[in-house]
Computed example of a mutant assay.
Amino acid sequence: MPDLETRLAARPLYLQVRDVLVQRIVVGHWKPGATLPNETQLAQQLGISIGTVRKALDLMEVERIVTRRQGRGTFVNDYAAAENTFPFSMFHDFSGHRISGQKRARSVTRIQASLHEAERMGVRKGDELIKVDRVREHQGQIFLSEICLLPAKLFSRIPEDFGSYRLSALAQLNAILVGRADESVDIVMASEEDGENLNVPPGTPLLRLDRLIYSDHEDVLEWWVAHCFMRNERYLVRFN
C-alpha cells in the first residue's frame, strides 16, 4: 500500500487500513461472499503489524462489512443474499426475530426535489429523485405504509423489481457502502389515506418513523417516512 504513513496522517493507522480494505471491496477487488486474505497475508501486503490489521477487521465486522468465522476466515458480506436482514430494520415478531415483511409497491416515479426534500437530503432543488410508495405485509396483514426517496444520481443501476428493493442490496449493486442512519419516532393520527392503506379508522394512533440513511461517505442514500399500525409486530431497539 503506497504512502500509507503519509495518507490521511491525522487518522489512526487502523482506520486508514480499514479505508483501504473497504475501497478494495467497493471497486470489486473482493466480491460479495469472497474470502479475504488472512491477517498475516494482509499485514505483509500492507507493511504493517498483524495487530493493526486485526483492529481494522474488528471495526469492519462491527460495521457489518465483513463476517469473521472461527477457523474459516473473513468473508465479505453479501447484502443481496435473502438471508441478510437490513441492519436498520427494527421490526420483530413476538419471538424476537427480526422481520422485514413482504413489500408491495403502489407506485414508482421519478420526481424533481422540492426545496424541503433538497434540504433534508443534501441535494439541489430540482435534482432527480426516485420515489417509491409501498406497503408491507406480515402474516397476511398490512402493518406499514412507506414513502422512500432516493437520489437518482447515486443509483444508476436498478433491478427490474425495483419497487420491492432492499437498500443494502441496491447499494451493493451500485458499489456503495451503507453507513449510519438517523431516525425520529413520534405518534400521529391516521389520515383517511393512512386508514385506507393500513385498514384502520381515520384518527387511529399510528407510529411514524422518519429516517435518513447515509453512505459511509455521508451521502444521503434514502429518506424514508413510514406509518405503522402493528398487530403481530413490535418495534424493538437493542443497545450493545
Score class of each variant (00 low, 15 high):
Met121Thr: 07
Met90His: 13
Arg98Phe: 00
Leu115Glu: 14
Arg110Gly: 04
Pro159Leu: 06
Glu146Leu: 07
Val178Ile: 15
Phe239His: 10
Lys131Glu: 14
Asn232Val: 01
Met60Gly: 02
Lys55Ser: 11
Val132Arg: 03
Thr52His: 07
Phe143Val: 00
Leu167Phe: 08
Ala9Leu: 02
Asn232Gly: 02
Glu192Tyr: 05
Arg180Trp: 07
Gln172Arg: 09
Leu167Cys: 08
Lys31Ala: 14
Ile187His: 02
Leu209Tyr: 01
Leu13Trp: 10
Asn174Lys: 12
Val53Gly: 01
Arg7Ile: 11
Pro151Glu: 01
Thr67Ser: 12
Ala152Leu: 13
Asn38Ser: 09
Ser89Thr: 08
Met60Val: 10
Arg18Trp: 05
Ile213Ala: 03
Arg64Asp: 13
Asn84Ala: 10
Met189Gln: 13
Ala152Gln: 11
His217Asp: 14
Met230Asn: 05
Ala190Cys: 04
Val26Asn: 02
Ser107Asp: 15
Ala169Gly: 15
Arg234Gln: 12
Tyr79His: 11
Ala105His: 11
Arg234Cys: 10
Thr74Cys: 12
Glu119Asn: 13
Phe88Ala: 03
Ile213Thr: 15
Asp19Met: 09
Phe155Glu: 01
Ser168Phe: 11
Leu154Cys: 03
Val26Ala: 10
Pro202Gly: 13
Lys131Thr: 00
Glu117Asn: 04
Val27Met: 05
Val178Gln: 03
Glu192His: 08
Asp219Ser: 06
Gln141Ile: 10
Tyr214Phe: 15
Asp219Trp: 03
Arg18Cys: 07
Glu196Pro: 05
Pro12Val: 03
Val108Glu: 07
Val123Pro: 06
Asp161Trp: 05
Met90Pro: 00
Leu57Met: 12
Gln16Arg: 15
Leu57Pro: 00
Ser49His: 03
Asn199Phe: 09
Gln141Asn: 13
Glu218His: 10
Val22Thr: 12
Thr85Trp: 04
Asp78Leu: 07
Ala81Gln: 11
Gly203Glu: 12
Val26Trp: 04
Val200Pro: 04
Gly126Phe: 05
Lys131Leu: 13
Arg98Asp: 00
Leu8Ala: 14
Asn197Ala: 14
Leu129Glu: 05
Val108Gln: 06
Met230Leu: 15
Glu160Thr: 12
Ile25Tyr: 01
Gln102Leu: 14
Gln45Gly: 02
Gly140Val: 11
Gln45Trp: 09
Pro37Cys: 10
Leu15Ile: 10
Asp19Asn: 07
Glu61Val: 04
Arg104Leu: 13
Val200Tyr: 05
Val108Met: 06
Leu8Ile: 06
Leu170Cys: 07
Asp58Glu: 15
Thr74Pro: 02
Phe88Gly: 02
Thr6Tyr: 07
Pro2Lys: 09
Ser156Gly: 14
Phe88Leu: 10
Ser191Asp: 04
Pro37Gln: 04
Ser191Lys: 03
Ser184Gly: 11
Asp186Met: 06
His97Asp: 15
Ala10Arg: 09
Asp3Glu: 14
Asn232Ser: 15
His116Lys: 07
Met1Asn: 02
Met230Ile: 08
Lys55Trp: 01
Leu144Arg: 08
Val135Asp: 05
Ile99Gly: 03
Phe162Trp: 06
Asn197His: 06
Leu15Arg: 12
Ser215Asp: 00
Glu117Ile: 08
Asp19His: 09
Arg120Phe: 11
